[in-house]
Design a protein around this nucleic acid. Structure first.
Length: 155
DNA sequence: GCCAACGTTGGC
DNA sequence: GCCAACGTTGGC
């Protein structure tokens, strides 16, 4: 089993949105590095932390989900009405992929970006580095468990 | 293949 | 809303 962090702006798609749907296709990945990770490394059964980005004081890790379907083509790339539409992608060789994820649980509390930055153990984590623009980041089991543990600790 | 211009992400 | 960082595009 592998571990990940997946970012979404809560105004677009939040943990509660996922909770309501139970399962969702993680669409809108338009970065080649991220696409390659989805395609080559992410597999059914992997665990992922749900990270709310661009959310002011609420920015941080809020929940846990599971990958329930390996990567397959993202339909929004062919949808002219979608903001994720990509005119250069063609049906026979789709450029963009996504995975399906399922809600597992909400963390007892937010583990904020500020808190992650304060933990020495995460100094090397790309998630907290300035200029990091990958919306999906791989974690070690230890990092994943440490973040979950922090969420269970009273502030 | 270089690199300037442009677009996007995401913290603040 | 601003802007730093950095990925992508396209002219040469």
């Amino acid at each position: 089993m592998q571990y990940w962090v997946m970012k979404s702006e809560p105004g677009e798609f939040s943990l509660l949105d996922l909770k309501g749907k139970r399962r969702a296709f993680w669409d809108g990945i338009r970065n080649y590095q991220v696409r390659n990770m989805l395609r080559d490394e992410m597999r059914v059964g992997d665990r992922a932390l749900f990270y709310h980005s661009n959310a002011g004081a609420e920015t941080g890790v809020v929940g846990v989900m599971e990958v329930v379907k390996n990567a397959y083509p993202d339909a929004t790339q062919f949808d002219k009405k979608s903001k994720y539409y990509d005119a250069k992608s063609d049906y026979s060789n789709p450029r963009w992929l996504g995975v399906e994820v399922e809600f597992i649980h909400e963390l007892p509390r937010l583990v904020s970006l500020a808190e992650l930055k304060g933990e020495l153990a995460f100094q090397e984590l790309p998630l907290i580095k300035k200029g990091n623009r990958l919306s999906i980041i791989k974690l070690t089991k230890v990092q994943f468990e440490k973040i979950v543990k922090l969420a269970n600790k009273k502030v």
